[in-house]
């Protein structure tokens, strides 16, 4: 079974991104194009700037130089409120850990993005339950994050990221705190779900087996993308 990324229009067009934190240059002129519907892995050693790149693509950070164009809109020139709105409505995020509110049940956690964008409580809970079922967590709805295993918690996080039907999913080390089996389960589910919903995904990881679920990878090193052999 092979996957053939259908040639599709570029969704993200990043040109000459530059960003520094104090004296450290995190991004030193990064060019990147991401097509709609593909899964991209951003890899590189620690401190290479890959998380920073993700944050810039997602509109969390504003680059000091260069531009990011998403779906025809220039993200890097939007104000914080607009970018926050974009993140809420069109992007989804999965992190390594700590993104679920420990006081809320899994179901409530998943419903939060819908509530934030104005959906009614009942409908939000219904959609959350549906999604949890799709991810095999239909019995975990009432449990709270401390009562779930690492893998289950990450799947709940995935549900929360997808519940608002985002167009792009950003994952920052989604398997970082999981063991091999849990990593595999989460990534399989992630890749399958994302493909079936037609969601574009950008995964930052240092783990090759996680990156293996992507369609292609870029290596970030010292704030730049290594080119020369394939892009």
């Amino acid at each position: 079974m092979t996957h053939t990324p259908a040639p599709s229009a570029p969704l993200f067009c990043a040109r000459d991104l530059r960003l520094s934190f104090g004296l450290t240059e995190a991004l030193r002129g990064v060019d990147l194009t991401i097509r709609a519907g593909e899964i991209l892995a951003i890899m590189g050693p620690s401190g290479s700037g890959k998380s920073t790149l993700l944050h810039v693509l997602a509109g969390v950070l504003v680059p000091a130089g260069g531009s990011v164009v998403y779906d025809g809109r220039c993200i890097s020139t939007m104000n914080e409120a607009e970018r926050a709105r974009l993140r809420l409505t069109e992007f989804g995020f999965v992190f390594q850990f700590g993104q679920l509110l420990p006081d809320l049940s899994a179901l409530d956690n998943v419903s939060i993005p819908l509530l934030l964008s104005g959906t009614g409580r009942r409908e939000a809970l219904a959609r959350a339950q549906e999604l949890l079922a799709v991810l095999g967590l239909q019995d975990c709805g009432d449990k709270r994050p401390p009562q779930l295993s690492g893998g289950q918690a990450q799947r709940v996080a995935l549900a929360r990221a997808l519940v608002a039907r985002p167009r792009v999913l950003f994952a920052d080390e989604p398997t970082g705190s999981l063991d091999s089996l849990a990593s595999e389960q989460v990534m399989e589910l992630l890749a399958a779900t994302v493909r079936s919903f037609g969601v574009t995904m950008v995964v930052v990881t240092h783990d090759p087996r996680t990156a293996a679920y992507a369609d292609r990878e870029v290596i970030v090193r010292d704030g730049q993308i290594r080119t020369g052999f394939d892009l």
Binding site: A81, A84, R85, Q99
Partner: peptide, 18 residues
């Protein structure tokens, strides 16, 4: 105590009025 979680939620777009 919930710093990280709340920061991540703001990152995902939760407005600060919320």
């Amino acid at each position: 105590d919930r710093r990280r979680t709340l920061a991540l939620m703001r990152l995902t777009g939760m407005p600060h009025t919320a």
